[in-house]
Amino acid sequence: MNVLIIGLGYAGQRFRQAFEHVTNRAGVSTSIAYVGRRQKATPLRYFACIDSALQHFTPDIVVVSANDISHADVLRQLAGYQGFVVCEKPLATPTDALNGVQDALSGVGGFALNLIERYSQATQILREWVARHGWELVRASFYWGKDRINDYRPTCGVTSEAIHALDLLRWVCPTAGPLRPDGVLGIRSDFSVSGLAVLDTVQLTAVLGSAPVTGYSSFVNVVRQRTVDFSFVDWEDQLIHARLTFDTPRWDHDHLRIWMRDIDGTELVLHELRLSPSQSGLETLHKLSEFCQQVLDWVVRRQPPPHPFASLDDAVELQELLNQLEHRALTPAAARYNRGAQRALLVEGSDLESLG
């Protein structure tokens, strides 16, 4: 099996490690090649352009892990490709035309957007509880942030971070209805090498079906913080709360807590799960490896995933939602982080916890 990675930077290296792990474990002979602007110090086969790689390497799987500002251009160059496409989130940027992307991918044999928190056992269990008990969403909120100030990687901004929480709201509550933004506030700054006024933070109100939602997401959060809170009512009109916490204190260390409160304030914990995976060699890669395993199972054995992949239609719908955040955000004057003559950028070899 051949896997082509377009963009062997931070995300591309993670995909490389994950696919190497799952194919070795499955005993599937695999060759990995990459496309990049320049050749790297790696034994992997290198291609300078996508057309040449598709023609001479004939990949079964193409991974699009270039910087998000390049996604749309890369995806359009896959026109005519008939294998399976894995795309790092988000699908595109708020300035990209989506119709060309959809047309280019019309002939692919499969597509999956990497919405990694769907592959946390904590998320999957909460989704199962909601479905099994028929809980109705009353309200939800999220706080989703990390520090990407002076990161060396270009970015379209905070929409690339907010996508996780927005997707989880809909994925945990698939019958609640559409997610419609109401009010959006934001901050722009020079936090990124991509510009002097890139949207780095959004605070929003929205409605998921009939349930109000509040949310905050930021690329200039001084610590990594990823939580999503839900309040439900059951068939007996009892109130149930649930909190999902991700990547705390380390990547892939997730936590689910579901509880009720008695009239005297006593909490009745219905379910609690703490995930602390520690398999050697898979640091920061446990959820990504599960995602890649499901892609491998589909491509090699046509084994459907336990839950459908995030399809191209899903990706476009999410992108249209992100575009609304970018275009509707009310922002004051941009903040300035860089006051000197040169930026002090994080280097490409920084540790994964810092970059993630």
Rank of each mutant, 00 (worst) to 15 (best):
G80K: 01
F84K: 00
G80S: 03
A97L: 12
V101L: 10
A92D: 06
A66K: 01
L75V: 03
T93N: 00
L98N: 03
A92I: 03
C87P: 06
L91M: 13
C87N: 14
A72H: 02
V86T: 07
E88C: 08
K89T: 06
V101E: 07
I69D: 12
G80E: 02
D73T: 15
A72C: 09
Q82I: 02
K89V: 07
D96S: 05
A92F: 03
G80L: 02
T93A: 12
I69H: 08
C87V: 12
S70R: 11
H71F: 13
D68L: 07
V85P: 01
V86I: 15
H71K: 09
A72G: 06
I69N: 11
Q82Y: 01
D68K: 02
D96F: 01
I69K: 04
T93L: 06
A79V: 04
N67L: 06
L75R: 02
G80D: 02
F84D: 03
P90T: 14
N99S: 15
Y81K: 03
A72W: 01
A79K: 14
G83F: 06
V85R: 01
A92T: 05
P94S: 13
T95S: 12
N67Y: 11
I69F: 04
A66N: 10
V86D: 03
C87A: 15
P90L: 11
E88M: 11
G100I: 11
D73K: 14
A79H: 13
G80P: 01
P90V: 08
R76M: 15
V74R: 05
D73Q: 15
A72E: 04
A66G: 14
N99I: 13
T95K: 11
L91S: 11
T95A: 13
E88L: 08
N67D: 13
C87Q: 04
F84C: 07
Q77H: 10
Q82V: 11
Q82D: 05
K89M: 03
V74G: 08
E88T: 07
N99L: 12
L78R: 05
A72L: 05
V64H: 00
A72Y: 03
A79P: 05
P94E: 05
V64K: 00
A97F: 09
A66F: 08
L98G: 08
A79D: 13
L75M: 12
D73A: 15
T93R: 04
L98F: 07
H71Q: 06
N99H: 14
N99K: 12
P90S: 09
C87H: 03
V74F: 08
G80H: 01
Y81W: 09
L91K: 07
A66Q: 08
N67C: 13
D96W: 01
V74S: 06
D68G: 10
A92E: 04
N99A: 14
D73F: 12
L78T: 10
S70L: 09
V85S: 00
A92Y: 00
P90Y: 03
V101I: 15
D73R: 15
A97G: 12
H71P: 10
L78D: 05
S70P: 05
V101C: 10
G83Q: 04
V64P: 00
V64G: 00
V86R: 02
G100E: 11
P90H: 10
L78F: 06
G83D: 04
